[in-house]
Amino acid sequence: MSELATERQIDRSKMHVGSDVAIQINNMNKWYGAFHVLRDINLTVNEGERIVIAGPSGSGKSTLIRCINRLEEHQQGDIIVDGTELTSDLKNIDKVRREVGMCFQHFNLFPHLTILENCTLAPIWVRKVPRKEAEETAMHFLEKVKIPDQALKYPGQLSGGQQQRVAIARSLCMKPRIMLFDEPTSALDPEMIKEVLDTMIELAEEGMTMICVTHEMGFARQVANRVIFMDQGQIVEQNEPEEFFNNPKSERTQLFLSQILGH
């Protein structure tokens, strides 16, 4: 588990953290009914950062990144994405969602549309891109994730790994400035995990701002510039991957790491 199953060298030439702030979260709290899921979250993400969020299940990692594109509503504090504050104003929410792409554990492709239609739908209807141009863009990104020959098939005809790569291509077609990954490899077979991680690494090499909730510690070690550990709805520890894995400060982190890296 600890080493990423990839043979190729990672090209770090474009992976640098900018000085512009992409996401700013201040004193954010969220409750599900009476249950306090996210507690006093403070997080600043600069452009070009590649952040991995780790933590035991139920620690609020997914909820946190789902708040960033308002799939979940927060009750207290501010979330400012790319200069737009997330409030109940629908215009702002739509604006943020156009700039933030997201990949889900279960892909959430649209099964009644072909792969190509999945990729062109949002550009055509949300960005008002002409169909032809949208199709060209879609084919470009499908080539990038190495499945252009599946463009006219339906999601149900593809393997899990292929579906997840389509989901990544679909998000990229909206030309997002930030990508969120919510356990993108958790529902996949080991053989398919590699192909999805490779795609994510390529994205990182191009300088995309990324926040990934994942249990792939090899990916975290090699690609991330910051690892955040969450437990019980709060950020327990964050550090550069080298420090985080070799020299965890908090006891809770040490326990977690020993459990997932121990065997």
């Binding site: 594109n69 308002r70 799939l71 629908l90 739509d94 969602r97 156009r98 933030v100 792409g101 997201m102 889900f104 279960h106 892909f107 959430n108 492709l109 649209f110 739908l121 949002a122 209807w125 949300v126 679909r170 998000s171 909206m174």
Partner: peptide, 23 residues
């Protein structure tokens, strides 16, 4: 319909009517 279909549509920035009509 699984909840994920709504989330997929939302995350791509489709508004309510577009999501209903297309997805």
């Amino acid at each position: 319909l699984p909840r994920g279909q709504y989330e997929g549509a939302d995350s791509l920035g489709l508004n309510y009517w577009q999501a209903q009509r297309l997805i």
